[in-house]
Every structure is written in C-alpha cells, then in structure tokens.
Design a protein around this nucleic acid. Structure first.
Lengths: 142, 142
DNA sequence: CCAATATCAAGAATTATTCCAATTATTATT
DNA sequence: AATAATAATTGGAATAATTCTTGATATTGG
C-alpha cells in the first residue's frame, strides 16, 4: 500500500519495544518513515525524511537505527548490485524487481504455494538464514 | 571442478576474441584465473593471482577487465550484501549460497525443469535482464 | 538518587570502486 | 611498412557509502 504524502496517517502505532529492542524516538521515526514511504528508500532518503520530525538526528544515527531494526528482524535490507542499501518493512518472503528505466523497485511475490527452498539443489546440511532475490530489467508500458 | 594449484592445466584454451571483445593478455589472464579458481574471488583476489603471470598489471586494469568480461556476458558478477563483488565464470542460471561459518560460496542449481520467472508474480510487461539469488546461512557438517 | 549501560551526534576514517591523464599497444589506412 | 586513429593499460587521485571513534545524553536497574 502506498500513500500520497498528504494522505499519510499521522501516527502509525509503534510499540515501545519490539522483540527486545528499545524503541527510542529515533528508531520510531525511522521505522515510521519506512512504513509510510514504501518505495525502498536509502539510508540517506530516510535521513532527509526523518529530519522533518527530528531536526537534530544525524545520518550516523539513521544508519544505527536501520541496522538495529534489521538485526531484530523488524525491517529488511535490500541490495542491488553495489548501489546504496535500501530498506523495506515488508517481512513476507518476497523478491525485488528493479526497473532500470524508472529506477522504481517493485516487491515481487511468489505465486501461491511456491517455496524457493524446495526448488533448489541445496548442499546437504544447509540451513538458510536469509534469501535475497533481485531482478533487474525493464517494464514495457506499451 | 577445482584444481590444486600444482595441477592447474598450464594453458586453458582462450580464444582471441569473444563476442566482440578483444582478448588482450590482461583479459585472458583475468579470465583464466576465474576458470581455474572456482571459488568466487574478489577483484583483489584476482589481482594478486594474476600478478604471478603479469607482474605489472594494475588493480584498475583488473577492474576494467572484469567489467569488460561481465558486460560481454562472459562472466558474472555476484554480490553479497555490501561486500566486495565476486566473479564467477559459471553462466548457467544458478544461485549462490554463502556459508557464514567458512565464508565459502557454493553455486546452487535449480532442480530440473524449474524456471524462476514462472514462479513469480511479475508486474505485467516486465522484461527480466538479470536475476540474482543469494542465500546466506550455515552448513551443518554433523 | 546513583551507577551502569545504551544510545546519540559529529566528524574522522575506511574501503571498494571509479575516474583521470599520460603512456602504450593494437588496428586500420595509406 | 609507416602513420594515424582507436582502444587498453597504469598509477595515482577522487568518490561515496558506510563504519568507527569519542564525548555527550539519555535510560534503566538497584
């Protein structure tokens, strides 16, 4: 779901603490931004956005917050080639399609019932902790 | 296939030109290294390895060569999180499993008949140019 | 309330990679 | 074969994203 900025719900409910992570004001605002801007922003994008509400926040803190949220499984970090990391609060198993012409990143779901691990010849004993599926291409808007 | 260094065939056949790319001595040696060291080396790994045969080669040239080979579809560039890029001469559609404990990267094939694009809900009109599947985890060697 | 701990801010440091300018090598042209 | 045009290589400087460091602030537990 994507909101126009003007329609963003003023306050998304954010708990005091998530899975053992202290939700400081900075972490809350970083998380809120990701929930509102569903377009896979970079750390710097988040930084600029969060400054509206916390003018004194530093970029280093945004990086710290993002890392803390990633470590605690609250958001996901998404990488394309060697570009800046992007962040995404969609925790369901999904991939990303990077449209080269517009730069837009689309979340890609599996068709119902598909589970990636079933389709791969994994080495015996492999325990998967994280999967990243990234597609690059063009979107023909004929 | 992985050779011990002492057993590496002295000269893998490398054509003068591949799909329009002039195969200079530097590109040949970079490519040869990738064919011999099937362990997904970084640019710097390749650089150190190639220096045995071309002591004057520069790291910039290794980067140039790798880029040229990637651009011409002769090798693939593989990225894990934000680590240095790695390079791989296996052109078949496959993914990579990064064993966190050993650091080893394993090529992962699809089970026969599986085609990733068929299993995803791609946006209409999407033309895929590249797919990257990376898995991170541990290999239990019980 | 006080001590211990965690977080934050600002700027410096790091590191992979790219860029740049000068040289060298290769190919095409006469 | 000589020369001109083009492409590749080098080495070092520049870049950019991210991490580190240090001192200040805030929070929690006792």
């Amino acid at each position: 779901m994507v909101y126009k900025t003007s329609e963003v719900p003023a306050d998304i409910e954010i708990p005091e603490e998530i899975s053992g992570l202290r939700m400081t004001r900075q972490r809350q605002e970083v998380y809120r931004t990701l929930m509102q801007e569903r377009n896979h922003p970079t750390a710097n994008d988040v930084f600029m956005r969060v400054k509206d509400r916390l003018p004194n926040i530093s970029l280093a803190t945004v990086y710290n917050c993002l890392e803390a949220l990633v470590q605690h499984g609250i958001i996901r970090q998404v990488n394309f080639e060697r570009e800046s990391s992007r962040y995404c609060p969609n925790l369901s198993e999904h991939g990303h399609f990077h449209d080269e012409t517009t730069g837009v990143i689309h979340d890609i779901d599996f068709k119902p019932g598909v589970h990636l691990a079933d389709l791969l010849n994994l080495p015996p004993g492999a325990v998967i902790e994280d999967v990243e599926i990234t597609l690059r291409g063009k979107l023909l808007t004929a």
